[in-house]
Amino acid sequence: MKLDEIQKRLLQEVADLHEVPEGAYNIRSNSQSAGRRSTANIEIVSKEDVSGLEIRIKPGTKRESVHIPVVMTESGLKEVVYNDFFIGENSDVVIVAGCGIDNCGNQDSEHDGIHRFYVGKGARVRYVEKHYGSGEGKGKRILNPGTEVHMDEDSYMEMEMVQIKGVDDTVRTTTADLKAGAKLVVRERLMTHGEQNAVSTYAVELNGDNASADVVSRSVARDHSFQKFDAKIVGNAACNGHTECDSIIMDQGRILAVPGLEANHVDASLFHEAAIGKIAGEQLIKLMTLGLTEAEAEEQIINGFLR
């Protein structure tokens, strides 16, 4: 696998990878596959009609991982990639995706990853997706992830989505439908700077008894950036749904939180929480009495908040 230093740095940022990962992987670099490995239980094949992968995980596969990071370093690339995950019944796996864009040119670079998950009965998935941008060019770094999750009975999926730095424009759309006993947990961490724009939309349908969803976003909007968090949960059975948007605004940052709950069943129990505000003054003062400057205190508070 040949990757230059910038590509290696991006890989480290988005997938904590220093070397070729263990288990199954596919590394996509500037629209080409830079390396791939399938294992006995996890098969990765290229799609024939469109750009993207099919990842098939055999039923009962335990404690295995799949890494599918994407790095882009050529300015002006624009790609749409479709990845489908078929996660076999009763398997227990970790999937690490993520995209790093380094754009030093003047043309926009854009990666739109469309991920579809078919989570089999009783399967457990931990999905980690990190987005990162760098480069001094005028060209924007744009990421528009679309995620579709279909969860069969008693399956469990935990999604950790992180975008802390350097992505200029994001529209994230996540939809999920859950059958009886399935559980979806989403933890989103977002920080925007400069003139960045980030929109995150969730639509979760709880269709079976005892299905549950917990969607929590923690975010920080600095400078002139703008964020929109739009989370909707629909309860069509005896189910539990919770959404939470907990945000800090700084400078001229703006945040719009649009919670939506729809209960179509008398035993659906849904609730949401949203709190937006600047850093609490007493938190700053406390850390300053420990010897930090105001700027250092701010940094500690935000680092903790987005941990």
Binding site: L290, G291, G304, F305
Partner: peptide
């Protein structure tokens, strides 16, 4: 009335205090 922080651990706080 001590202040609470989201995400900052006890260890972090003691380290900040110790400098």
């Amino acid at each position: 009335q001590p202040v609470r922080f989201k995400g900052i651990r006890v260890l972090d706080l003691i380290r900040i205090a110790a400098g």
